[in-house]
Design a protein around this nucleic acid. Sequence first.
DNA 1: CCTTGAACCTGCGGGC
DNA 2: TGCCCGCAGGTTCAAG
Length: 275
Amino acid sequence: MPELPEVETVLRGMAPVLAGQTLQSVAIGRKDLRRPFPKAFAKRLTGCKVLSLRRRAKYILADLSGGQTLVLHLGMSGRIRLSPRAAYVPQPHDHAVLFTQAAAVAFNDPRRFGLMTLIETDGWAADPLFAGLGPEPLSDDFTPAVLAAALAGRKSPVKTALLDQSAVAGLGNIYVCEALFRARISPLRPACAVRQTKVLTAAIKAVLTAAIAAGGSTLRDSRYVQADGALGYFQNRLNVYDREGEPCPRRGCHGVVQRVKQSGRSSFYCPACQK
DNA sequence: CCTTGAACCTGCGGGC
DNA sequence: TGCCCGCAGGTTCAAG
């Protein structure tokens, strides 16, 4: 689930449950995810107050009292399951559970490509996890000129370049495909040959904004907030992703959505209208 | 530097 | 029905 819009949705689900609360206990179910949990992880978290939560790229950061920041990455299959504390029932692949006075926040990740760690709040941006990241696509830092500079001199396909988090942070396989469709640019085109950076920048922002709005709508709808990182209702609005063989949804285009492999990942696009 | 491919894991759906 | 294969929303590391 987790590209930028899903991570943002999870963040918005978690924030009201955790912000301002003290971590009364923490249960760790194994010694590692993608990398080992920090030494004495549960102990270092217990008793800390969660000051605020924020997102950078696909990472969720929870700033804690005591000058530390809890960093969370959902990997491919990570989810956050919220429940009233007393109603928490352990599930397979619950690797870490944070308990506040009222709530349980469970990190569940079957494939274990996710990540949980602690860093110093001061200078967090210089941490190796964040140092190499490109601009936030929804911020004013992400402009056509910035995108042009990131694509310049890159011979690899634009699809691959956009997946590289150092160009723009937060895009994944789904939303790169969708943004390129919206911009009418073929994923196969060499990055350095893309001239429509203005259109592409706008497409990226529009796709992400719409997806966040759709994720948010599932939150608004539910009495019980499920910060599960599911695609929410936006999956119904995907134009090309996972739609191989279907007619191109663009009005007036009679193309058929194709799937191709690019550096090991599936790309979906319409050869008729994406040049 | 840039680029590609493999690796890390589990679960699911399709085809036989 | 059951088994095997390929595939999955991400990142990182090695090697060319």
